[in-house]
Amino acid sequence: MSIQHFRVALIPFFAAFCLPVFAHPETLVKVKDAEDQLGARVGYIELDLNSGKILESFRPEERFPMMSTFKVLLCGAVLSRVDAGQEQLGRRIHYSQNDLVKYSPVTEKHLTDGMTVRELCSAAITMSDNTAANLLLTTIGGPKELTAFLHNMGDHVTRLDRWEPELNEAIPNDERDTTMPAAMATTLRKLLTGELLTLASRQQLIDWMEADKVAGPLLRSALPAGWFIADKSGASERGSRGIIAALGPDGKPSRIVVIYTTGSQATMDERNRQIAEIGASLIKHW
């Protein structure tokens, strides 16, 4: 058993032996400061991975655009179909130039040979490839079927209504393609630790998130040596930015963190910096 498999397999085991986890309101002070700095709403939640207890939250039940963070949920739905014998990670999917949409750094290189379902999930999560996400959405029946999958998990909040890139429109008060921090954190925890997916599929999902290559300026920039993080970021119109993550010290995840912001006029660099500073406060007061 690899170190990674050891880590995921023991998450339920550690729940019975973990020390009490204490919240630190200092992080919420930073979240509120980020709102002031960005001139935008910020949603935040910090969840204990083992118990599911909410440690801190700010606007946990307000809607925010999901942006590309939905791609983790999408690959969770794909893995659920794999577990049920309805899909194979090794199945190759062929597509054409007409299928390519904006920001497809991986799929645009494989027009001649296509990509496997496994490769598409990797591209969608680690590189946020939009065509990969659309191709995967097609395999499960489209955005409405992803919403149905989430409903069956008990998440009646999170919804996907459109495809890439239209889902990134982020119109104020538009509930399409949105979630709430509390709903996203709970759903992510179920995917990573619950019985919905097999152990192998849970491991695969967290491996893809751990290999994320496009979230460096966010929480990863504040991470001390030896800490673990598996994450997925997102960005969209109207100053929207977000990240969902499982992270913790000693090389294993122990908390879920979800951060969303929307409605800012700030630059992408400034949005990144504010999220990184929230992460730094979280780690300092861990």
Results as ranks from 00 to 15, higher is better:
105 P>G: 03
182 A>T: 11
78 V>C: 03
129 D>E: 00
110 H>D: 02
193 T>I: 15
93 I>T: 03
56 E>G: 08
217 P>K: 10
225 A>G: 12
184 M>R: 00
283 I>V: 14
281 S>F: 07
88 Q>V: 13
201 S>P: 01
192 L>I: 15
17 F>Y: 14
154 G>E: 07
50 N>H: 14
153 M>I: 13
200 A>T: 13
79 L>G: 01
134 N>K: 01
125 I>D: 01
90 G>H: 15
250 D>Y: 12
244 I>S: 00
131 T>A: 10
143 P>S: 02
167 L>R: 01
38 L>T: 06
70 F>V: 07
40 A>C: 12
179 T>E: 00
247 L>I: 13
6 F>A: 09
173 N>L: 12
163 W>K: 07
47 L>V: 15
231 D>Y: 03
251 G>T: 05
60 P>R: 09
64 F>L: 00
41 R>T: 08
106 V>L: 12
66 M>I: 11
283 I>R: 02
67 M>I: 03
267 T>M: 07
275 I>T: 01
234 G>E: 00
25 P>T: 08
163 W>S: 06
25 P>Y: 11
225 A>S: 14
182 A>E: 12
74 L>I: 04
202 R>H: 06
3 I>R: 09
262 T>R: 07
247 L>H: 00
49 L>F: 10
188 L>C: 06
271 R>H: 13
87 E>C: 04
285 H>Q: 06
97 Q>P: 14
135 L>M: 09
198 T>E: 11
76 G>V: 01
235 A>G: 11
198 T>P: 04
93 I>M: 11
68 S>G: 08
89 L>C: 04
183 A>H: 09
150 L>C: 09
5 H>A: 12
228 F>L: 03
86 Q>P: 03
18 C>F: 06
158 T>G: 02
222 A>P: 06
113 D>T: 11
168 N>A: 08
93 I>F: 04
87 E>M: 09
238 R>D: 13
235 A>S: 10
90 G>F: 11
135 L>F: 04
216 G>A: 10
166 E>W: 09
267 T>C: 11
172 P>I: 09
186 T>M: 15
108 E>V: 12
219 L>D: 02
183 A>S: 11
197 L>F: 03
119 E>Q: 13
181 P>I: 01
216 G>E: 08
39 G>V: 08
168 N>K: 03
113 D>G: 12
137 L>C: 03
253 P>N: 05
6 F>H: 10
165 P>M: 04
198 T>M: 08
228 F>T: 03
163 W>M: 09
245 A>C: 07
221 S>T: 11
262 T>E: 11
12 P>N: 10
225 A>L: 09
10 L>A: 13
79 L>I: 02
77 A>V: 10
61 E>F: 15
76 G>S: 07
241 R>E: 02
178 T>L: 01
240 S>C: 13
165 P>T: 10
213 K>R: 12
165 P>H: 03
5 H>P: 09
285 H>N: 13
228 F>S: 03
88 Q>R: 13
198 T>C: 10
263 G>V: 07
56 E>Q: 07
241 R>H: 05
80 S>F: 12
24 H>T: 07
237 E>G: 10
4 Q>S: 14
105 P>T: 06
55 L>Q: 04
176 R>D: 04
179 T>N: 00
215 A>P: 03
107 T>A: 10
74 L>A: 05
246 A>V: 13
257 V>A: 02
233 S>A: 09
244 I>M: 04
266 A>H: 09
179 T>R: 00
275 I>L: 09
203 Q>L: 08
16 A>Q: 11
27 T>S: 03
244 I>Y: 00
80 S>C: 10
137 L>S: 02
210 E>G: 06
160 L>S: 07
227 W>S: 00
253 P>A: 10
254 S>L: 08
239 G>T: 07
138 T>K: 15
61 E>L: 13
181 P>L: 00
63 R>C: 03
52 G>E: 05
123 A>G: 05
99 D>L: 09
168 N>Y: 04
187 T>S: 12
